[in-house]
């Protein structure tokens, strides 16, 4: 591809695009790993509150789960924009739904963060 047009097109940027891709790549590892440990490596019946206590006594898993929470909610927030825009043609409806989504995501983040802070210290 000629350098001339790539040089000029390089000024096009998008935070949404980068967010979705960056969080997505991280999530592929974090989420599948989380699922693997809680469902495959350990049978789900064994993941009771004592399992949780043991898991969160290790800094690795606390950081893992915290990152998982943050990345997942960022990813959903960025991707939801596209979904809502594709399904809600009305500008008012779009803004209302997007605002509602942002509130929900913020609430979920607070819930998850509080859980980690209270339980894992």
């Amino acid at each position: 591809m000629p350098d001339q047009d790539t040089a000029r097109v390089r000024t096009a940027r998008s935070g949404t695009y980068l967010t979705i891709r960056a969080t997505g790549v991280l999530l592929a590892v974090l989420a599948l790993g989380h699922f693997g440990v809680t469902h495959i490596v350990n049978d789900v019946a064994a993941t009771d509150s004592s399992f949780v206590a043991r898991r969160w006594s290790s800094a690795l898993w606390v950081v893992w789960d915290a990152l998982l929470l943050a990345m997942a909610l960022l990813h959903v927030g960025a991707a939801m924009g596209a979904v809502v825009r594709d399904h809600c043609p009305g500008r008012g409806a779009r803004r209302a739904v997007l605002a509602g989504m942002r509130v929900l995501i913020a609430a979920l983040f607070v819930l998850g963060a509080l859980t980690l802070v209270v339980a894992a210290g």
Binding site: S49, V52, T115
Partner: peptide, 27 residues
């Protein structure tokens, strides 16, 4: 699912016994 999961894991911070009750359903 994540929304529901955050709620049920959040129970652990409230009381591990409550968490275990819900968790019994998982298996």
């Amino acid at each position: 699912f994540l929304a529901l999961h955050l709620l049920d894991v959040g129970l652990y911070a409230l009381s591990p016994a409550l968490f275990d009750e819900v968790h019994a359903l998982y298996s």
